[in-house]
């Protein structure tokens, strides 16, 4: 039942399972295999693949296809996502569903092509202009690259909003067994779409509301939607967290390193657990606050300069000390490194 697949390729396998009809993108390392897989597979199942002239064009092609009611996606890495931010704001403003995959590389600027988690602010907090949110999922394995792409399509349609699969170069490039199951695609009706038919002739896709009262009403509607998503869609995973004195917090590839670190710590009799946010927006604040309340300290580990750290601290709201450890530039800490760090922090706490 299993097949060995690259994370980036698994994204497209998931997309095809989800009934994705179109992919518009621009190549960039370490995300290019997503475009390549889309080019190879989508046209074979009757879908559209087009390599755009830029990420700017790509995200606006996504906007056009989404306006017409298609399940559509794009993928890129940091620099490309920076260029797409304008379009993502328009998509959110016009309430258009789509899936955007960010295989994060080192930044800022051209940075490098090694894995980082430095696009957290850009994708989770917005990045484009205006009051909007992206739904953000953070896979940690090849299987989740496929599964979360499927979920992202469902969430995007459910909330008429861009959904982001935020991952990194390692998860994109690595290979693991992938198990897929054919399922019937249940795509919601999109009566708002513009399809060039008599029924859809009155429809208008737009993000412009020139009168302040109109725009305020539109934003209230978006806020209500985001509030609903925040209540229903927060996802997370814990590992040996029930009796943990120290809770490690990390997402994506880091959560796997932390899982190994937890195992090593437990072998030495240290009560260490893991909290792994799966959705970065909505952030699983409530669950983290509850899990954190039982602990003496939290250690947040990231491949960024402390971007998720703000959400972790907000979640526990000063009730538990939150320590921070990071590697950047494309370095990924080993489990041993985390373990050593943990011991030195514990010594300092004692």
């Amino acid at each position: 039942m299993r097949q060995l697949s690259k994370g980036n390729v698994a994204v497209i396998r998931g997309a095809i399972l989800a009934g994705c009809q179109a992919y518009y993108g621009y190549p960039i390392t370490p995300a290019s295999e997503i475009a390549e897989a889309a080019a190879l597979y989508l046209p074979q199942v009757g879908g559209t693949f087009l390599q755009a002239e830029s990420e700017v064009a790509a995200i606006n092609m996504v906007y056009g296809a989404a306006s017409a009611g298609q399940r559509v996606m794009t993928a890129s890495s940091g620099p490309g996502l920076s260029l797409m931010q304008e379009g993502i704001s328009y998509l959110a403003g016009a309430e258009l569903p789509c899936v955007i995959v960010d295989v994060v590389r080192g930044g800022p600027g051209l940075g490098n092509i090694a894995p980082e988690q430095s696009d957290y602010f850009a994708m989770v907090k917005g990045g484009g202009h205006g009051n909007y949110r992206n739904l953000v999922l953070a896979p940690a394995s090849v299987q989740e690259m496929a599964d979360f792409t499927v979920l992202a399509f469902e969430l995007a349609d459910r909330y008429r909003n861009p959904a982001v699969v935020l991952t990194d170069g390692f998860v994109g490039q690595m290979m693991e067994p992938l198990e897929l199951e054919l399922k019937t695609v249940e795509e919601p009706e999109k009566p708002w779409a513009v399809k060039g038919t008599p029924e859809t002739r009155p429809n208008l896709v737009t993000s412009i509301f020139l009168e302040p009262d109109d725009l305020e009403a539109h934003q209230r509607k978006l806020e209500a939607k985001y509030k609903r998503a925040a209540q229903l869609e927060a996802r997370y995973e814990t590992y040996m967290a029930e009796d943990a004195e120290v809770l490690l917090v990390g997402y994506g590839i880091v959560s796997r390193v932390l899982r190994t670190a937890v195992e090593q710590a437990r072998q030495q009799g240290l009560r260490v657990g893991l909290f792994r946010p799966i959705t970065l927006w909505p952030f699983p604040s409530k669950a983290l606050a509850e899990a954190g309340a039982r602990c003496a300290a939290l250690l947040d580990v990231e491949l960024s300069n402390g971007q998720m750290l703000e959400d972790v601290r907000l979640a526990v709201n000063g009730k538990v000390p939150v320590e921070f450890y990071n590697r950047v530039g494309g370095n990924v800490p080993s489990a041993e490194e985390i373990h050593d760090e943990l011991l030195s922090r514990l010594a300092a706490l004692a």
Binding site: T48, A57, N60, M61, G64, S67, A68, K195, L204, T206
Partner: peptide, 22 residues
């Protein structure tokens, strides 16, 4: 008509997405 309002300068890209869908 069925109307789609788009970002500054991007009409040909958005129209591409629309046309390929329809």
């Amino acid at each position: 008509l069925g109307n789609v309002q788009v970002a500054h300068g991007r009409a040909p890209a958005a129209a591409t997405g629309v046309k390929r869908a329809c």
